[in-house]
Design a protein around this nucleic acid. Structure first.
Length: 473
RNA sequence: GUCUCCAUCGUCUAGGGGUCUAGGACUCAGCUCUUUCAAGGCUGCGACACGGGUUCAAAUCCCGUUGGAGACGCCA
């Protein structure tokens, strides 16, 4: 039988990190088993859903490189059809109409809480006679459909937790159809999954209690029960379920911060799963090859952004200049720099000079601004520390020596500096630091000689002239 | 409160009875390299929650305790 899995996010305005990880595992599982990965949007809650929001989910998934084979299907499209199952359900005798109002229910629930008792629906309406039910329906009383949970125990084999069992007395006679006729989440999910022939339901741990309810719906409907696999939750720093109030949970927000998708995928893949061993860099292809549900941990994992940053930095270092160019062009544009106005090789050299420093690709513009614009401000602390009249003179000499150079390369520049330092009995640093300040306005940055080569002899001379002839002291 | 899940360094984890004086990675500290900052290299700090079993032998299996989390809606 073909393996069919799905991700079923509700469009809430962003793609949650946890949803992304669940999607990733489903995707990996499907690919691993040559199956299908299906995207279904749970948009029954119309008030909270919009097209724009589902676009965001699709965009997030695409960004991560998680492609779906079928869909997106929209739950709302099937909305009218759920009620068609009512006759079938009633025939089983396992569902009943309930006339209790929300208010009555709240009252009784509150009383149960006050009495420190666990609340479950008290089956008040199960006692109603057929005539009474008929009478109230005819009278126009609003009602919901509830499922009657039988005696006994329910259990299932979970792909990550093994056997999970629960006594049926713990399961509520929950509502199937609301008084407005709409199906409740658990019902819709089961009908959808059954209709789409989903074979494996891989989702968050927080659905374990729903699973018991859904199993009873499968039985009620006479449908095959899929395999379930419940993933441990992704936790925030306080070890609570990662949520909006935990901080950044939107996948696209990480993209906008300057995280590379492959770094993000690699990172979240390793929360709750690992292939064993010490290896921790994996491409999507490798993840597909190595993935298996029986290596998923049962324990929730903290989303450690420090480690994400570290991993992102690694991926940035390895990222090709061609790809960086495409990624960075809009980011530079935000900083009023049009990369297309410059020589491509000039840009690539610039990237190479700072690749190892960036943790986020968004840091590139501020790391490289001095390549693009003249310097008119010099870091004050650096000025105090490195600049004095004597050193200004040194810079003037160096400038004239460099202007006489034929090939302006990192190596030849270094030779000049080293030689000069030696003949003047200086430390190379005594001329290097002032030069950096003159050329970049700062005390930190890429390797100086490399930077000078990239900047070019003309620009270096101009900036040195400006620096040494201004009255900055 | 009830039910369910979980329990190895601060964090992600390796470990599936002996190879564990518990390995790797992130973080942190130090050293090194060095023209700065990073990166790199090296070193260090740092964990089997507790108590009972089972066994010649337990981080590994069982039970309990404690602790943490999740779910308990006419939300999804």
């Amino acid at each position: 039988m073909e393996t069919r899995v799905r991700i079923a996010p509700s469009p809430t305005g962003y793609l949650h990190v946890g949803t992304a990880r669940t999607a990733l595992y489903n995707y990996l599982f499907a690919k691993k088993h040559s199956g299908k990965f299906i995207l279904r949007i749970e948009d029954t809650d119309r008030e909270r859903s919009s097209d724009e929001m589902t676009e965001i989910i699709k965009e997030g998934l695409k960004w991560l490189g998680i492609d779906w084979d079928e869909g997106p299907f929209y739950q709302s499209e099937y909305f009218e059809h759920y009620r068609e199952y009512i006759p079938l359900m009633e025939k089983t005798g396992q569902v009943y109409k309930c006339f209790c109002t929300k208010e009555e229910l709240n009252e009784r629930r509150q009383k149960a809480i006050d009495d420190k008792k666990a609340w479950r629906y008290d089956r008040k309406c199960l006692e109603l006679s057929d005539e009474e039910v008929k009478k109230r329906v005819e009278r126009g009383d609003e009602f919901v459909y509830r499922i009657r949970i039988p005696e006994g125990k329910s259990s299932f084999e979970d792909m990550v937790h093994g056997t999970i069992e629960k006594d049926n007395s713990e399961i509520d006679d929950f509502i199937l159809f609301r008084s407005d006729g709409s199906p409740v989440y658990n019902l819709a999910v089961v009908i959808d999954d059954a209709r789409m022939n989903i074979t494996h339901v891989i989702r968050g741990d927080d659905h374990i209690s729903n699973t018991f309810k859904q199993i009873h719906i499968y039985k009620l409907l006479g449908k095959d029960i899929p395999q379930f696999g419940h993933l441990p939750l992704i936790l925030d720093e306080h070890k609570h379920k990662l949520s909006k109030r935990s901080g950044t949970v939107s996948v696209l927000a990480f993209r906008d911060m300057g995280i590379l998708p492959e770094a993000f995928v690699n990172f979240i893949a390793l929360i709750g799963w690992n292939p064993g061993g010490d290896e921790e860099y994996f491409t999507m292809e490798e993840l597909i090859e190595k993935f298996s549900m029986d290596r998923v941990t049962g324990k929730g994992g903290v989303f450690d952004i420090k480690k994400l940053e570290w991993m992102n930095a690694k991926y940035i270092t390895q990222c090709s200049n061609e790809r960086l160019y495409g990624l960075l062009k809009p980011i530079y544009a935000e900083n009023k720099i049009n990369l297309d106005n410059y020589d491509r090789h000039f840009i690539y050299k610039i990237f190479d000079s700072v690749k190892e420093k960036a943790r986020y690709i968004n840091e590139f513009p501020s790391l490289t601004d001095f390549y693009f614009a003249d310097i008119d401000e010099y870091e004050e602390k650096g000025m105090k520390k490195y600049i004095n009249p004597e050193r200004i003179e040194h810079l003037k000499v160096l400038k004239s020596r460099m202007e006489a150079m034929e090939d302006y390369t990192e190596e030849s520049i270094e030779d000049i500096y080293r030689a000069y330092a030696e003949e003047q009995s200086l430390k190379a640093a005594d001329v290097i630091h002032p030069t950096r300040l003159a050329l970049t306005g700062r005390t930190v940055g890429p390797s100086l000689f490399k930077l000078m080569e990239i900047l070019g002899s003309k620009t270096v001379s101009e900036r040195l002239t400006k620096f040494t002839e201004s009255d900055i002291l």
